[in-house]
């Protein structure tokens, strides 16, 4: 039964995010690509306005300086946190400033994660900034921006 509950919540959460993103894309349909502005607007949606007060520090996004193949760019992220029930990292959102769409991925942690670390592989269409924002359990936000030079873009076309 626990499984069922979690699934429903997750799906709802996804729908809310997707809905927000869709509404947002609708408003800017003339812009084919994500820009720093659309990325910032998506971050605002994802953080329910919290992105505006985000501070530098605590979050580290590890991306290659030069990515030869934009189809699979390794990304590692870590956020400084004791990861206890009182103080932990809730989520990290990755947003693109130069892909066809700004949304990349969100990672959700719990105190049981032990460390707010994650690694994955992303597609990057062209040379651009990737923005990572961490939401802490105390409601604070930390942001980090990394530039990646992409030799061969990775979003088809």
């Amino acid at each position: 039964m626990t499984n069922m509950k979690v699934e429903v919540l997750d799906r709802r959460q996804f729908l809310v995010t997707a809905g927000a993103a869709a509404a947002f894309i609708g408003g800017f349909s003339s812009a084919a690509n994500a820009t720093p502005e659309t990325a910032a607007a998506l971050l605002k949606e994802l953080t329910k306005g919290g992105a505006a007060g985000a501070m530098e520090g605590k979050i580290k996004i590890d991306l290659p300086e030069i990515a030869e193949n934009g189809n699979t760019v390794p990304v590692k992220l870590s956020v400084e946190s004791p990861m206890t029930a009182d103080s932990y990292v809730k989520s990290v959102h990755l947003v693109s400033e130069g892909n066809p769409g700004p949304e990349m991925a969100s990672f959700h942690f719990t105190p049981a994660s032990g460390k707010a670390n994650a690694a994955a592989r992303m597609r990057l269409a062209k040379t651009q900034n990737v923005v990572g924002i961490a939401e802490m359990s105390d409601g604070k936000f930390y942001v980090s921006k990394t530039q990646v030079k992409v030799t061969i873009g990775g979003c088809g076309g």
């Binding site: 626990t2 995010t17 066809p100 991925a105 969100s106 719990t110 994650a118 597609r123 990775g154 979003c155």
Partner: peptide, 14 residues
């Protein structure tokens, strides 16, 4: 049975 980590993926995931 308890979720300790989850991730939402979009088109930008390889």
């Amino acid at each position: 049975g308890e979720t300790f980590f989850s991730s939402d993926w979009h088109g930008a995931v390889s």
